[in-house]
């Protein structure tokens, strides 16, 4: 029996992002479409940053996860337009990021509060952090550095 698309989405929601394993690829908003074409399942994935090395790992993880559920013919389609935006990050994803110690993206262009102590006096250390999608900030209250998932 061919699993329906809604079931596939729930499976994909269990595939973690390889760099930030607390959120799923669905939370991240990079799975743009799931559709059957005959007996082939096509999954459209959009990259976060053009050069993000996680992109190819994500494609492989999706294929593996679906294969493990018995889906034998999977085609990953890279969809560039419309370009990925942090607006597509789900509310669940944002909450999980915060709990993990990464400040979620904020339209103001910087984190709202320190993910450790909640302090709001913050200093940007560098616009570029440990992965392409993050910036490096420090809390002036608890003095701890933290990652900020930057808005694009």
């Amino acid at each position: 029996m061919i699993p329906d698309v809604a079931t596939i989405w729930t499976w994909l929601d269990q595939v973690p992002d390889p760099e930030i394993p607390v959120i799923s690829v669905v939370d991240l908003g990079i799975v743009r479409d799931v559709a059957w074409h005959g007996d082939t399942l096509e999954v459209a994935v959009t990259p976060t940053y053009s050069g993000c090395p996680a992109t190819s790992v994500i494609a492989m993880d999706i294929e593996t996860a679906l294969y493990d559920r018995g889906v034998r013919n999977v085609r990953i389609r890279t969809q560039i337009a419309p370009a990925w935006t942090t607006d597509w990050l789900s509310d669940t994803g944002r909450a999980k990021l915060l709990a993990y110690g990464i400040a979620p993206p904020s339209p103001a262009g910087g984190p709202e509060a320190c993910p450790q102590c909640g302090g709001t006096a913050l200093t940007r250390i560098s616009q570029f952090g440990s992965t392409p999608c993050k910036a490096h900030w420090r809390c002036d209250t608890c003095l701890e550095p933290f990652d900020y998932f930057k808005c694009i």
Partner: peptide, 20 residues
């Protein structure tokens, strides 16, 4: 270190754009 990371990240973006 911060500049090192920033330069490497910029390089990564540019090489990703190159692939496209």
């Amino acid at each position: 270190l911060e500049e090192d990371i920033a330069l490497a990240n910029t390089a990564l973006d540019l090489i990703g754009q190159t692939q496209m």
